[in-house]
Write a protein that binds this DNA or RNA. Structure first.
Lengths: 194, 194
DNA sequence: AAAGCTACAATATACGAATTTTGTAATCTG
DNA sequence: CAGATTACAAAATTCGTATATTGTAGCTTT
């Protein structure tokens, strides 16, 4: 019987919550397991029963944060209107979320950036989730689903934390729209020549 | 009458040379004006007659390094064969140079990365030079030259030092080819819908 | 035995003193 | 007097050490 009154799953979720909050408050670089544990009324050692390492907790934080992004995009993908129009909306939303987060939620953003640089599986999984959503949209709109990785690579400048940060002042939406419509036009024109 | 036997221009060039060499030897972060000056038989203060600051010298280093890249790409752009084919070759070359440099010339690469993050004019000028080359090629191949900034943005994942470094193991050329041909097909299909 | 704690070693971070380095000004020299 | 030097202040970096944090093991409690 757990003394915290939480199941293993709940404790992991709570620890992830607390870690995100503390990260937002004190910054990515100053997040301490000791503090997370203390805030939960635990010794830091107790966390090791639920997370194999600090990185594992940070992964959980990033996973949660990316899951919210995927959920928002999933709603756009499943939204009303013609599928082809939703592709542009989806891409714009992807960019807006990235930009908004760089501006207003920089600490988890930095955690993501580190996870990304370290090629953590949580990042790979996120990219795959985006690919799947976009592939679904493309399929629905009558395009070959193989266009999804292609589009994602071409839109990378609008997602990547550092590139987004570098252009945070500019309105890059017109350029993004042009790229999306050019890519869609190109895909429509048929399978690209090898 | 200069005691070094060099004109102002030559001295700047020599200092830039020496700085690149030392940077390659000791690393970007450990480059010291003192050492550059000493290697030229000068006191560090003498450098200030030719460079307004260390950043100014670093800019000269990056400018030189980027000029070599522009020259190689310029040759490709001016090369033989149909213009449309040269666009793909140009993009592949752009990626190969970026990749090769990340692998074999990491220190100036880091200097470029810092200059890029600091939004130094030398980087803006480089981007403009690339845009002009690509615009020329597009024009020659019968495309609207406005496609150049669009293509460059879409190819950013294949140029940006950090993104190139992250995928250094992979062969991304097939994907690059697909993106280029899709974009060209899209541009050919007519001005993208606003 | 499950859930957690205390104790501890290895590692990492923070801090402050000493040293370098950068940048400026006044001075020297051919 | 252009070209360079020495001298010097401000800022940055290094280096040694004290402190904190991470991760592990064995012990305690219910």
């Amino acid at each position: 019987m757990p003394r915290t009154g939480m199941s293993a799953g709940e404790l992991r979720e709570t620890a992830t919550d607390v870690a995100i909050c503390r990260m937002r408050k004190v910054g990515y670089g100053k997040l301490r397991l000791t503090d997370v544990a203390a805030e939960m009324g635990l010794s830091h050692a107790a966390l090791y029963a639920h997370f194999s390492s600090k990185s594992d907790l940070l992964d959980a934080v990033v996973r949660r944060w990316l899951a919210e992004k995927e959920a928002t995009l999933g709603e756009v993908a499943a939204g009303p209107g013609p599928a082809e129009a939703r592709i542009e909306t989806w891409a714009l939303t992807l960019h807006r979320i990235s930009r908004e987060r760089a501006l207003r939620d920089p600490e988890p953003c930095q955690a993501y950036d580190f996870a990304s640089a370290a090629a953590r599986p949580v990042v790979t999984a996120h990219r795959e989730a985006l690919r799947a959503q976009l592939a679904g949209l493309l399929g629905e709109a009558g395009f070959d689903e193989d266009g999804a990785p292609l589009m994602l690579e071409a839109l990378r400048a609008f997602q990547h934390p550092q590139l987004v940060a570098r252009h945070i002042e500019e309105d890059r939406e017109p350029m993004l729209r042009r790229i999306v419509s050019t890519l869609l036009a190109g895909l429509k024109a048929g399978a690209p020549v090898a």
